[in-house]
Simulated assay, not measured.
Amino acid sequence: MKNTMIEIKNLSKEYGKFKAVSDASITINQGDIYGLIGKNGAGKTTIFKMMLGLSHASSGSISIMNSSNDAELRKNRQKIGFFIGSNFFSYLNAHDNIEYYRRMKGVEDTKETDRVLKIVGLYGEKKPFKSYSMGMKQRLGIANALLGNPDIVILDEPINGLDPQGIVEIRQLIKKLNKEMNKTLVISSHILSELDLVATRFAIIDRGIILKELDRADLANEEGSVVIIKTNNLEKTVTILKDATQIENISIQDDKIIINQDNINTASLSKYIVESGLELIEIYAQHNSLEDFYFNLTGGQNNA
């Protein structure tokens, strides 16, 4: 049984008549890489600010590492490191920027600055912050979040604006923090393909409402798969398959047949289509992604 690190129950945040977050409930367990998924303005950063005590909830409750009262909550918030944007001095190098924040945060260990810079690969970097690539800036922000060796690390849009190389570097760093350093990570992103590669648990938020919370095993079951078929006569193929099989969810889209049903034996279908006198051009199973699941759940479009 994993320990619960953060538990949010029925959390809401209102600004006048506008509800930024509405009745949200999520559970983050020790060792999770927890992906909070939603488009810009969905409420992700608002939830983070309430977790950190930077914004007061209108209603609901937050418990961090089983805190049961306000005093314990304030104490346990000190065990959270957070990256919400990178606010550094443009003329200072990596060491001097992190050293400033070490002192600001009251971290007494003078070796801490070098420790976190080594973790993110910026130890010994002499250039000023203003000359950094976006990936370097993001990694310095994560180094700041790691000061004091927190148990929980919150990363708000850590790959936003990065080139492919920068994305790979952050992905590797996230996995290192989780596997080698036993950090529980909470990551928000609207780049779903990347969260699909790293996260172990997910919550999908839309317009301030948590639509679904699930782990990777649940997601695999939810995602399902589709079978794509191309023949020389699509209409005849659909008619034959409907008459001779128990396949129900079958349709023609553009120049192909789509079967949206799990546990389809493509080998058997191939044999049946050919034996029916049709020319089979192509048949393959395509696994639906986290992105597909998200857009199906929110009713959005993949190009939105």
Rank of each mutant, 00 (worst) to 15 (best):
M1V: 12
N3Q: 13
T4K: 06
T4M: 02
I6N: 00
K9C: 03
K13Y: 13
F18R: 11
A20C: 13
V21L: 04
A24W: 01
I28N: 00
L36Y: 09
I37F: 11
A42K: 08
G43D: 00
I47N: 08
F48Q: 03
M50D: 12
S58G: 08
G60N: 09
G60F: 05
S61Y: 05
M65Q: 10
N66Q: 12
S67V: 01
S68H: 10
D70W: 09
E72M: 13
R74H: 11
K75S: 15
Q78F: 11
K79D: 06
I84S: 03
G85I: 07
S86A: 09
N87L: 09
N87P: 11
S90V: 03
S90N: 09
L92I: 05
N93T: 01
A94G: 04
E99D: 07
R102F: 00
M104G: 07
G106D: 14
V107P: 11
D109A: 11
T110F: 09
V116G: 11
V116F: 10
L117H: 09
I119G: 14
G121F: 11
G121R: 12
G124K: 04
K126F: 01
K126R: 08
K126A: 08
K126N: 07
K127N: 12
P128Q: 01
S131N: 07
G135M: 01
K137Y: 03
Q138M: 08
R139N: 10
G141E: 03
I142M: 10
I142R: 09
N144L: 10
D156G: 07
D156S: 08
I159K: 06
G161R: 06
L162H: 12
D163A: 02
Q165I: 14
V168A: 13
L173S: 12
L173A: 11
K179E: 13
E180A: 10
T184I: 05
S189I: 11
S193R: 15
E194G: 12
L195G: 07
L195E: 04
L197N: 06
T200C: 04
A203C: 12
D215N: 15
R216N: 03
A217I: 13
D218T: 01
N221Y: 01
E222S: 08
G224W: 00
S225Y: 09
V227C: 02
I229V: 08
K230G: 03
N233A: 14
L234G: 05
L234C: 05
E235W: 06
V238D: 02
I240W: 08
K242E: 11
Q246K: 15
I247E: 05
I247S: 06
E248V: 13
S251A: 14
D254P: 00
I257W: 07
I258V: 07
N260E: 10
Q261L: 05
N263E: 15
N263C: 12
K271S: 14
K271T: 10
I273L: 04
E275I: 06
E279I: 15
L280S: 00
I281E: 12
I283W: 05
Q286V: 02
Q286W: 00
L290Q: 04
D292C: 08
F295Q: 13
F295N: 12
T298A: 00
